[in-house]
Amino acid sequence: MQRRFRGPPTAAIVVAVAVFEVVGTVVASARQPDHRPLDALAFVLLLAGPASLSLRRRAPLVMLPAAAASVVAYLALGYAWGPVFLSLALAIVLSAAAGKRWQTWAVAAACAAVLVAGAAGSGDEFALVRAFAGTSWLAILVLMGEGVRLRTDRVAERRRQHEAREQAARDEYRLALARDIHDVVAHSLSLINVRASVALHLGEKDPAQFRPALEAIKAASKDSLAEVRQLLGVLREDAPLSPAPPPRLDRIPGLADDARRAGLEVSLTQPEAAAVHQLPDAVQEAAYRIVQEALTNVVRHSGARKAAVVLALEGTTPAADAGRQLTVTIDDDGAGAAGVPEGNGVTGMRERAAAAGGSLHLAPLNLSPLRPGWRVRAVIPLAAPPAMPGPERETR
Rank of each mutant, 00 (worst) to 15 (best):
P247S: 05
I192H: 04
A16S: 06
F5S: 00
P243L: 05
A110N: 05
H201P: 03
H361E: 12
E172A: 15
A363I: 14
A133F: 10
P245M: 03
L313S: 03
Q230R: 14
Q284D: 05
D206G: 08
A274R: 08
G263V: 10
L138G: 01
H187W: 08
R393A: 12
S29H: 15
A106N: 04
A156C: 06
G358I: 04
A120C: 15
R179I: 10
I217H: 01
I217M: 10
F210Q: 05
A308R: 13
V298A: 03
A109H: 03
V234G: 08
L326R: 04
S122K: 10
G336S: 11
D180R: 12
A12S: 13
A98L: 05
A168M: 15
L175H: 14
Y79V: 02
A259T: 02
P246V: 15
I140N: 06
E163Y: 13
P37R: 12
R393D: 10
S188I: 09
V93S: 02
A156L: 13
L77T: 09
Q167F: 11
A273K: 11
S52R: 02
A112H: 04
A108Q: 02
R261D: 06
S136F: 10
L255Y: 03
G49M: 02
R236N: 14
P240S: 09
A178M: 06
Y74E: 01
V15T: 07
R305C: 11
N344D: 13
L177E: 03
V23P: 07
A337D: 08
V22P: 09
E146P: 02
L313E: 00
L241M: 07
L77K: 02
A109N: 02
L279S: 09
G203S: 10
A28R: 04
L235N: 02
M144G: 14
R179S: 07
A186N: 13
Y74C: 01
R261Y: 01
W137S: 13
V17A: 01
A322Q: 10
D153V: 12
A59F: 14
L268W: 04
L45Q: 02
A273W: 03
S87P: 02
W137A: 10
R36A: 04
L77M: 07
A384W: 05
Y74V: 00
I330M: 06
A98P: 00
L370Y: 09
V155W: 06
T25C: 03
R300I: 03
L225G: 15
A354Y: 13
V27K: 04
A273T: 13
D39Q: 15
Q325K: 14
P318V: 01
L231A: 11
V23Y: 09
R211E: 12
H201D: 15
L295P: 00
S359Q: 13
T296L: 15
S136H: 13
A120H: 14
A12R: 07
L41P: 03
S221R: 07
L177I: 08
L61I: 14
A97K: 00
R195N: 04
L141M: 07
N193I: 05
D124S: 14
R58G: 13
H361D: 09
A226H: 10
A384F: 05
A18C: 03
A186R: 06
R130Y: 06
G263H: 06
L143N: 05
R130L: 07
V71Y: 11
A164P: 12
V142P: 00
A112M: 08
G373S: 05
L128N: 00
D281C: 09
G123R: 10
R393V: 15
S190Q: 07
